[in-house]
Simulated assay, not measured.
Amino acid sequence: MDTASSDTRTNADRAYDLIRERLVMLDIRPGDPINDDQLAGELGFGRTPVREALKRLERERLVIAYPRRGTFATIVDMTDLADISEIRKQLEPTAAARAARVATSQARERLSELISVLSEITADDDPREVLRIDVGVHCEIYRAAGNPHLEDILVSLDGHATRIWCLFIDRLPDIADHVREHISLLQAIVDGDEEKAATLTLAHVTGFEEAIRALV
């Protein structure tokens, strides 16, 4: 993120990012109660930014608030897999092709840097850290596409897909290989090859769904 955009970010934005990562990576487990006072203390923010962040996360269906009961992390529902995959198969290739077409020189430079990061991933790396890299790669592709509406949709969907990954992370021995698949995709975007970027993205999303279904 550039300096200008960083300077305009509020404490609510920062709280949102931190809490969202905990929810997506299942550091806050599905069904767990969420205490806004405790979170505010842990994150070093006041209660108001945390509450604003939780309202935003509720719209993304990552938390749910019940009157007089409190706020909880949503359950990861495996029946959502087909719905999530259906939309991602349509929109992810669109975003990748668009990124290949319109990405700025700065965006292409960031994607090139990520290629180097991905090249260093090994099967011995912590799967959770590899998955965090995967999330970052996806976000950079969505951002490079230059359509904030498309970006918002895909960031939300990728978050739910990552929660599903995390449920099975101990049973998926090839996470490093799955994430390294992005190397050729990122290169296609950097090279401006729209068709290849879209094709590789569709294969990646389809492979994710197939890998999960093989374990269910």
Rank of each mutant, 00 (worst) to 15 (best):
S5N: 08
S6A: 09
T10F: 03
T10Q: 02
N11Y: 04
R14S: 07
R14N: 11
D17G: 05
L18I: 09
R22M: 14
M25N: 00
L26Y: 00
P30T: 02
P33N: 08
P33D: 07
D36H: 14
L39K: 13
A40R: 12
G41M: 04
L43N: 06
G44K: 03
G44P: 01
G44W: 01
F45T: 08
G46C: 01
R47W: 00
R47S: 04
T48Q: 14
V50C: 01
V50P: 00
V50L: 04
E52N: 14
A53F: 07
K55F: 10
L57A: 03
E58N: 08
R59V: 10
V63W: 04
F72P: 01
D77E: 06
M78I: 06
T79A: 13
T79E: 13
T79P: 07
D80M: 09
L81M: 09
R88T: 06
Q90R: 13
Q90H: 12
P93W: 03
P93N: 06
T104E: 12
S105M: 07
Q106N: 14
A107F: 05
L111W: 11
E113K: 15
E113P: 09
S116E: 12
V117I: 14
I121F: 11
D124G: 04
D125A: 11
P127K: 04
V130P: 10
V130C: 05
I133Y: 02
G136C: 03
E140T: 15
E140P: 07
N147L: 08
E151I: 08
E151A: 13
E151R: 15
I153T: 14
L154N: 07
L157R: 06
G159S: 11
H160M: 10
R163L: 09
I164M: 04
I164W: 02
W165I: 00
C166Q: 08
R171F: 05
L172T: 13
P173K: 05
E181Q: 14
H182F: 10
I183H: 06
L185D: 02
A188C: 02
A188K: 04
V190T: 13
L200S: 02
L200M: 05
L200R: 12
T201F: 05
L202E: 13
A203Y: 00
V205E: 07
G207I: 02
G207K: 00
E209P: 11
A211N: 13
A211T: 14
